[in-house]
Design a protein around this nucleic acid. Structure first.
Lengths: 340, 340
DNA sequence: GACTGGCACTCGCTACAGTCGAGTGCCAGA
DNA sequence: TCTGGCACTCGACTGTAGCGAGTGCCAGTC
């Protein structure tokens, strides 16, 4: 069953009007606001077909039409025109991000910027450790049997962990450990380190071995296995826009989902290069988010991806606008990271 | 105008019932559920007095009574009995907090625990840098003109900053810088460092001075002036309990306030030793939180305070319970920190 | 003087009926 | 294939009425 051009135009008009007004849109209003060149009656026939095909639906008999998730999907895939950023938005992005002093700062500014621009909930993943390379490992003795391990990644991330050693270690032994660990690991991707770390233990002198064994197990456990991912969130207050119509009346499931890092990572963490992913309502695997849509993409210096970012909002959202903003912000952040 | 014991008992009963049922409580229900030993008519007279004094009010003429902020205040100050934690709650606290591997972990577990126990929004401030002492400063060369400064505080906090040096610095110069900085600053409270840092610049050799000047200005600016406070938040989904009756129908102002770190710090950051602070509705200085109450206290190893924690919820909350939980959690966290 | 039972009154809540109007589906005709 | 017209549906809103929880007040009792 084919949808001719006019039917598609009708769907597009319905989506655009509904997103703008948040009210079911009827055939008369539609022909008034858009130059469709046909009468309301004709539009009604088209609407009947669109409804039959599952792209729109009627909340009640005497109401106008509302897009379904499927309708939004078609709109996003085939009907939306790219919406260029306004000069003001461009300026906002630049102004917001200059002057960030460190990675934390960059991430926080980014997430707030995104929330402000899109007026949705913004999520930014810190550069993933799995995709970072080791730039330096520092061992700081806290006491004779305790070390603070500080790992600095090339993405700017810094992670630390306290290591309880099996026995006392002399200062020059710490120096040896530090040298060995750095020689072996600097420059390698974190996801590739397990064999290297194992080798470290095997190759160390009997003297250093116990300390090295503890150290390396901590490194493996905390930095590699327990994928230390971090997430920043902003704009939850935006969920309350649009009264209680969005999200079928209760923010509860949404807020609950947003508290789970795992969930957020799933949403924005699986980014592929230069793709913007759009998940609409039901397409979402997380039950709590069935009433929400997510627009996300990856970011990173140059063409590599080190993390994801995106926005979450009601299915009734401005997809073209949000897609444009998410992309633009990701690009800027990438440039910012490339400078380091 | 004195309130005799029975009137106080009536107020207490009203608060307890209203908190439990979330419905205005009438005179008849009151004498049925509590052993007041008098008739509804008498209770009505008492209620009239309590209302005149501003402790309770009527939502509408034909409804029961509801406590006012002032009523809650009196309840908290004079009427509530300490509510001991249940064994299950004690166990939950212990179970939740053992096995934390580092400060981040402790803070995250704590905030989730608190949110879960109280079923409110929980807020935990990381140990304040201003109240921490420097344990170690590490300088890691990133390139010849760039240093990563990593500060480790005795509270477990680790902060890092990238420093752009005015000119290239040789490895052994970095070693010198590191030694000097540590000699001078280790063991001192961060809030006391400004004169020490200044002295560092004054005393360094001409050779090292430019680098030291940049380094120290970064230290001052980021660690001392721009009070690097951190906050963890959990349980925002709990705001949606109790339908939309709490918070006069809109979560928006609350969510907005919770996004501002400054606001949160103000709420829980000004802790005094062994005091639990309770802010009820209007007592709150932040306009957005006029419909909410906050229970907070300080925590730290032993009797010192290094940060604050607390919960935020509707004025209609279980004050005795929440006070008990906040205190208990603070004590446990303090013990945990003392072990380091 | 303090408490109580009784009584009239208030007023929010619910149910029900009636009206209005936006929007529809369908059909005959261009 | 499109259009104008028309009957129909049904949610939103309004007005009315009855119910009942809860109150304030007052006269009477201990």
């Amino acid at each position: 069953m084919g949808l001719d051009d006019r039917k598609l135009a009708v769907l597009r008009a319905i989506v655009e009007d509904y997103v703008a007004t948040q009210e079911p849109v009827g055939s008369k209003a539609l022909v008034e606001r858009h130059q469709l060149g046909v009468s309301p009656a004709t539009v009604r026939n088209d609407m009947a077909v669109l409804e039959e095909e599952g792209y729109i639906r009627q909340p009640h008999t005497s109401a106008g039409r509302v897009p379904t998730d499927r309708g939004y999907r078609l709109f996003v895939d085939r009907l939306s025109r790219v919406k260029p950023l306004s000069p003001a938005e461009r300026r906002a992005i630049e102004r917001f991000l200059v002057g960030a002093v460190d990675l934390d700062d960059v991430v926080h500014r980014t997430v707030r910027l995104l929330a402000q621009l899109t007026r949705q909930v913004a999520v930014v993943q810190y550069p993933s450790l799995a995709r970072s390379k080791v730039r330096h490992l520092e061992l700081v003795p806290i006491s004779t049997t305790r070390l603070m391990v500080v790992m600095i990644a090339d993405t700017g991330r810094v992670e630390q962990r306290l290591v309880e050693l099996p026995g006392p270690v002399a200062p020059d032994e710490v120096t040896d450990l530090r040298r060995l660990v750095n020689e072996k690991l600097v420059g390698s991707r974190l996801s590739d380190t397990p064999p290297l770390v194992q080798a470290l233990v095997d190759e160390s002198t009997p003297q250093l071995r116990p300390a090295m064994a503890t150290l390396s197990s901590v490194l493996l456990e905390t930095l590699v296995e327990r994928h230390e991912e971090r997430i920043a969130l902003a704009g939850t207050a935006n969920l309350t826009r649009g009264g209680l119509l969005d999200f079928q009346g209760s923010l509860r499931p949404i807020l609950e989902a947003l508290e789970e890092e795992v969930v957020l990572l799933k949403l924005i963490g699986e980014a592929e290069p230069s793709t913007t992913r759009v998940l609409i309502g039901d397409e979402n695997e997380i039950d709590n988010l069935r009433a929400a849509s997510v627009v996300s993409t990856g970011y990173g210096p140059g063409s590599t991806i080190v993390g994801g970012l995106g926005v979450l909002g009601p299915t009734r959202m401005d997809y073209p606008g949000n897609i444009a903003m998410v992309r633009a912000v990701a690009r800027y952040v990438g440039e910012l990271l490339a400078q380091n």
